[in-house]
Lab assay of single mutants.
Amino acid sequence: EQLARLKREFNENRYLTERRRQQLSSELGLNEAQIKIWFQNERA
């Protein structure tokens, strides 16, 4: 579920704002660094 949600977010926007990253962190139970790194890896 977390992965599917991250992929949906990535398809909508390849870059997250700090606020959006905080929201996802709270909703998915991941820390902000994990989300940031995931997005960086997807863009690579």
Rank of each mutant, 00 (worst) to 15 (best):
Ala4Phe: 01
Asn31Pro: 15
Gln23His: 08
Glu9Asn: 03
Phe10Gly: 01
Arg43Phe: 14
Arg14Ala: 10
Ala44Tyr: 10
Lys7Gly: 04
Leu28His: 01
Gln40Asp: 14
Phe10Tyr: 08
Thr17Pro: 05
Ile35Phe: 02
Asn31Thr: 15
Gln22Phe: 09
Leu3Tyr: 09
Lys36Ser: 15
Arg43Asp: 06
Leu30Phe: 03
Gln40Leu: 09
Arg8Trp: 09
Asn13Ile: 05
Tyr15Pro: 04
Gln22Glu: 07
Arg20His: 06
Phe39Asn: 01
Leu24Tyr: 02
Glu32Cys: 05
Arg20Gly: 03
Arg14Asp: 04
Ile37Met: 12
Gln34Asp: 14
Arg43Ile: 13
Phe39Val: 00
Arg8Pro: 00
Ser25Val: 08
Glu18Trp: 07
Arg14Trp: 08
Gly29Ser: 04
Arg19Thr: 13
Glu12Ala: 10
Leu6Glu: 01
Asn13Trp: 08
Arg5Ile: 10
Leu6Phe: 01
Trp38Thr: 00
Glu1Lys: 07
Gly29Arg: 03
Ile35Val: 07
Gln23Gly: 04
Lys7Trp: 08
Glu18Asn: 14
Arg19Trp: 10
Ser25Ile: 08
Gly29Leu: 04
Glu9His: 05
Arg5Asn: 03
Leu3Thr: 07
Glu18Ile: 13
Arg5Phe: 06
Arg8Cys: 10
Glu9Gln: 03
Phe10Pro: 02
Trp38Asp: 00
Gln2Ala: 13
Arg21Glu: 05
Ser25Gln: 04
Phe39His: 01
Asn41His: 11
Ser26Phe: 14
Lys7Arg: 13
Phe39Glu: 03
Glu12Met: 11
Phe10Ala: 03
Lys36Ile: 15
Ala33Glu: 15
Glu18Thr: 14
Glu32Gly: 05
Tyr15Gly: 04
Glu1Asn: 08
Arg19Glu: 15
Tyr15Asn: 09
Gln40Ile: 11
Gln2Phe: 09
Arg20Met: 11
Asn13Glu: 03
Arg43Cys: 10
Ile37Ala: 14
Asn11Asp: 13
Lys36Met: 15
Leu16Ser: 02
Leu24Pro: 01
Glu32Asn: 03
Ile37Lys: 12
Phe39Lys: 00
Ile37Gly: 05
Gln34Ala: 13
Glu27Asp: 07
Glu27Gly: 02
Gln23Leu: 13
Trp38His: 02
Arg43Pro: 03
Gln2Leu: 14
Glu27Ser: 04
Glu42His: 07
Leu3Trp: 07
Trp38Phe: 11
Leu16Gly: 02
Glu1Phe: 10
Tyr15Lys: 07
Ala4Gly: 04
Arg21Val: 15
Asn11Trp: 09
Phe10Asp: 02
Asn13Ser: 08
Arg19Asn: 11
